[in-house]
Structure formats: C-alpha cells, structure tokens
Nucleic acid binder design. Structure first.
Lengths: 340, 340
DNA sequence: CAAATTTTGAGGTACGTAAATCAGAAATCG
DNA sequence: CGATTTCTGATTTACGTACCTCAAAATTTG
C-alpha cells in the first residue's frame, strides 16, 4: 500500500496540518519541522496522489493556441490536433481556445498577444514569424506573467519558455543526407524551394541542408532557395520555371509548404527522374510518395507538438520546469514503405 | 462547470444510485430508466471524472512483462523502459513485474506462462518466439482470463489481444527502399543478416525486404539471409566470411541484433564503401552511424511499445477495446543527421 | 517573567465517484 | 388480488488531498 499524508504525519510525529503545510510550501513551519517531514517523505517514499490532488484543488488551465489560417495543409492538421486536445480537456483540466490569424502577418499576432488578459489565460502556444515585433510582444506577455511556448517555428532570443518543434537545422541536414545518398555520387544541381526566410524554421532547414551538401556531397550544387510564401501556385510556377531553365537540376528539396504546387510541377517532368524530398506528411505528399514522385518526406508529428506544448505550459503554470529531454520532437522520415 | 453524477440524476429525474447503476453497467435497472439516464448524460455532455473515479475505486493492475535475458542491447533497452514504467506505477495504478527468460528458449516462456495465477496477474506482455508451444501456452493463459499482448515480435494465430510493435513487413520494405535508392541503380549483391527465422519479426523483415528488391530494384541480388542467433561473434564471422567470399556484395541489410559484430566485420572492409542498413538504435549503431559506417538505422521506439502495452492491457482489464489506430508503433529511420 | 509572536495540532469540509445497505415502490406472476 | 420479484431511492462511507478555522503550545521578544 503506498503511503498517504496520514502515514507521513505519523512517521514524522507531526500533525496532518503540518504535513500539508510542508508539502504545499505554505509558510509558518520551522525549518526543523520541515526537515522532519521531508525525512519522513523520503523514508516512506511518499508520492502525492495526483488524481486526488487534482480533485481537491479543482484547478483548470486556460490555454490559448495561436495558429495561422489559410489553406496550408500542415497548419490545418495542427489545428485538428489542437481540437483533439480540446476534446480531452475535461480529463486534462485544460480549457483551450484557438485563435486563427492571417499567415505571414506579424502584426496580427502582436495584436492578439497584446490583447490578452493574464487573468484569463495562463499559457499561450503560438506559431510565430521570427520578427522583432513578435518577439517584443511575446516578451511583454511573459512580463505580464503569462507563459509562452513557440510551436513549429521558434522565436530565438525571446523569453518563451519552450520551443515545441523539431530541430530544423537537423531536419535540413537530414534532407541533405538523404538526397546526397540518393544521388550516390552523381553530380548535379539541387533546387531548394522555401516558403519564407522570415520563418526561422525555413531558414534553419536551408542552412542545415547546405551544410551537409557542402561538407559531404560536393558534387551537388544548390540552386536557390526560391521563396514562394508557401503558396502552392507560386511553388508550381517557380519549380516549373527552374526545371525548364536548367537541365542540370536532378534533385529538389522542398522545405516549406505548397506541396500541391510542387506535385503539379513534377507531373510535367516525370521523365527526368528527379530525386525529391519534401516536408510534412499530408494528403498530397502521401499520394506523391505512393506514386513514386517523392522519394522521401520529412515530417514532424504535430500531435506530439501540441501535446508537448500543453504539458509544458501546464507544468510551468505549476512552477515546474519541463523535462527537456522528454519533450524532444523527433524528425520523422517517411518513404512510401513506412507510411502510416 | 462540467456536470457531475448529481446533475445527471437531477436531469434524468432519478436517484444518484440509479445513475451509478447505469454508468457502471450494474444490473437491476429497467431499460426505460437506462434510456432516461443515458439521454441525460447525452444532453449534459457528462464525462466521468477519471481522477475521482480512480480515487474511489482503488484498483491496481498487476501486470507481468516477459523479456529475453542475455546481452542483446535492444532487449536491455526494452527492460530499461519497463523499469521506467515501474517508476511511474503509483501514478498509473499498475504493479509491474519483470520475468527474464533465456533467449530463444520457447520452453522457458511456456513454463512461466503456465505458472501464472490469474488472481495475481491481470495482464501479460511478452517477447515471444513464434513456435506452436508458446502459442498454445498463450491460448491457455487467455482461457484462464488473463489478457496477453505480444511485444516486439508477434504471435500470429494466437489469442493475444494486441501486438505492440512495428509492422515488420513494412520495416523490411523500408530497408529495401532505402538500400535500393542508396545504390541508385548500380547492380550488386545485398547480404542479408538475420538472427533467427523462428522469430516472426525477422521473418517478416526478410520477406518485406525481398519483396521491394524484387519489385523495384531488380539490379540488386539478395545473398542470404544468414542466421546468427543474434550473437555478435556469429555476425562478425558470417559477415567477414561473406565479404571475403563474394566481391560482388555492395550492401548489407542486418535485420537482427548482434550489431557490434557487424561493425567489427565492417571495420576490416572500409575501402569497399558498402551501403549498410541495420536495425535498432543502440550505443553501437549510433556510433556506427556517426562514423559513416552505417547509412541508416531502422528503429522501433521500445519506450512507446512498453507504454502502449500497458495502456492496452489496462484497457482490456476494464473491458474496453484498445483504439488500434492510436496504438500503432512507427517505423523510425535514423541517419547520422537526425539521431536523437 | 509576562507579553507578543510564531508554530503546531485538531478537526472539519470539499472535490466527484464508487459501492454498499436497506427500505419502499413498482411491476409481474400465479 | 395478494405474493413475489424486480427495480428504485435515500443515505452513508470511503478514496487521498487541499484548504480552512480556531485553539493550544512553543518560542521569541521586551
């Protein structure tokens, strides 16, 4: 039978009230008594029954998720995962709200952040563009006592408590490792297609990719990155133009969204047997993998990211530090053969 | 405020006792009344407070894990994950015991299974050799009312309720897809190294691998599989012998354990620039990836598998069906660039 | 040493559910 | 129709923790 507060009280030779004061760090207990209680906790191996504690202190965590709107499949998937988390709200004692903002619009994010009432929200998770005004708004919010976590794309230099997303530098390196190995020493050019260099995740992927190609696969030359604002039509046009202009392109790394446009562009050049690596498993990229149009897709599990964000924000609201190692998001690689 | 059983009782116009009978499927309630209560639950959107319920019914789930002993790094990692789950036991209301059996010894597994008392154990998770005697012992145990889940390697045809592991056919296909693409059309032979064809996971991987190579990469010829009983020394000898005997081998797929032996064998043939894909991230394989000795490692997250097994066994003990989709274990691919 | 202050004890209520008892009501049967 | 049997209501206790009050004890201060 695992020990309860009563056992601790008996073991330490103090009253239940004192044990409670020590366990919950309430004032009015002599250090000597604190030590006695803590020793008893140690001896008996007491651990608080979280179910009972949650029941007694009927605390709820009001959280806000800020995500870009628009047709981006990945973001819609992310939103779906947040809604799934909302379904679990009762069990997790959370109260989650979603705020959709126009994509690539720092001002909109700033305006949402500045309008928040710390009394109404204990934690915010946001997909942010890495611009100084957003960073400043995050810092203002943190100053007001709200905990902030970044989602998918980080805001380095801000006072956010945690980044819930993959290591995009490593993701870029992984793409480089894949394409390099897939090309197996054959010289050629690699077209890099990005969404926006205002997004730190895209920046990082491009750097990581270039790093590996330069170091390990000097026979491959990078073309780009071309920026498309993650718009499918822009991607289609950019890729089509590049392929037609340069017959030396033998591989494509698409590190942003707008995958549909990439697929449309590739459809016109199947004979070139391009090596293609893209990001995020969506309906489109899944089909492209199955069709052999893509060789690999690098993915981040946005369900994990959302759940991690919730855990981290809750923990911080309770004054606990998140265990970073446990919250690491993995870089998934999918071929047609291991698609879920 | 979320509704409680009291609200349901008031809404349905029945007593608390009746609500309790309906919610917990206790007998002695007319269908008409059941409907009334269920309608009220529906209307108010009642969901049971799991914390409170767990507190009230102080149920614990006695579970048993059966894992092979021996030096196999992967199995030791698995055991470590089980021990980590034991640490969380208080919070999860489980009481976990580990039974270590000699590897590749069906009789030992059978003897453990047959010695179990259904009153002492509600669920068993085991890493099994796919032999008829083990299947029969599992079925006997299930007959006695104990829930059984297979871990890592499945026991198809048995009455186990769930398999907690990766789709090994898909894993083999993935290895085939990787090696095929890495070889990029260059003809050659691929040495396949397996542990034991008595393990259904090894069987499946070999089949999946062959399937993809035959269908998509006819320029690659399979040599083997050679069986090594997952013994590192046996692997070293087998690989060394094969490499020296056949200069046409350009790739190796190691689908079992004994990775240390593989690395030792490769060390003597670095000049051959072999394409190597192995299974399971361990200390050794991690180093081999970093050194460029391995091109990719396919991994199953044994932490996930253990946690999934516990969820599934608990759910079944409560008479619930596990949600299969949620319990799927992913096939992870690691290059040196995305190692965690 | 008395007064003021701090520390501790004793006891209670609450959270939402589970599970039990027992009496009374309603339905069913002969 | 009365006698069973089946259902339902009312009430109670318990789970382990949080949080509250009030009084008593211990300690410090003047």
């Amino acid at each position: 039978m695992r020990p309860t507060v009563h056992d601790i009280a008996a073991e330490a030779g103090v009253s239940l009230a004192t044990v409670d004061r020590v366990l919950n760090a309430r004032p009015g207990v002599r250090q000597k008594t604190v030590d006695k209680v803590e020793a008893a906790v140690e001896r008996l191996g007491y651990v608080r029954d979280v179910s009972a504690a949650n029941l007694a202190k009927r605390r709820i965590y009001p959280l806000l998720f800020i995500v870009p709107g628009g047709p981006n499949s990945f973001m819609r998937g992310l939103e779906a995962e947040i809604r799934a988390a909302m379904q679990r709200s009762p069990a997790e004692r959370t109260s989650i709200r979603i705020e959709t903002v126009p994509p690539f619009d720092p001002a909109a994010i700033v305006s949402v952040l500045d309008s928040l009432d710390p009394a109404q929200v204990t934690g915010v998770a946001l997909v942010a563009t890495d611009t100084p005004d957003v960073t400043a708004a995050v810092d203002r919010l943190v100053e007001k006592g709200v905990h902030v976590a970044t989602l998918v794309s980080d805001l380095p230099g801000s006072r956010r408590i945690h980044y819930c997303g993959i290591d995009n530098l490593a993701a870029g390196r992984t793409a480089g490792g894949l394409i390099g190995r897939f090309r197996a020493g054959r010289a050629g050019k690699v077209l890099v297609v990005a969404g926006s260099m205002k997004l730190s995740d895209h920046m990082d992927r491009a750097s990581g990719f270039a790093e590996v190609l330069n170091a390990e696969f000097p026979e491959l030359e990078i073309v780009g990155p071309v920026e498309t604002n993650d718009d499918a039509d822009a991607v289609r046009q950019a890729v089509t133009a590049a392929l037609e202009a340069d017959a030396g392109i033998t591989a494509i790394y698409s590190l942003g969204a707008g995958t549909r446009g990439l697929i449309e562009a590739l459809a016109g050049h199947v004979s070139r047997k391009l090596t293609v690596v893209a990001h995020e498993v969506t309906e489109h990229s899944r089909q492209a993998l199955a069709d052999g149009l893509f060789d690999a897709v690098i993915n981040q599990d946005c369900g994990h990211e959302v759940r991690s964000a919730i855990r981290v924000l809750k923990a911080r609201s309770d004054g606990l530090m998140p265990i970073s190692a446990q919250e690491r998001i993995r870089i998934d690689i999918f071929l047609r053969d291991n698609l879920p």
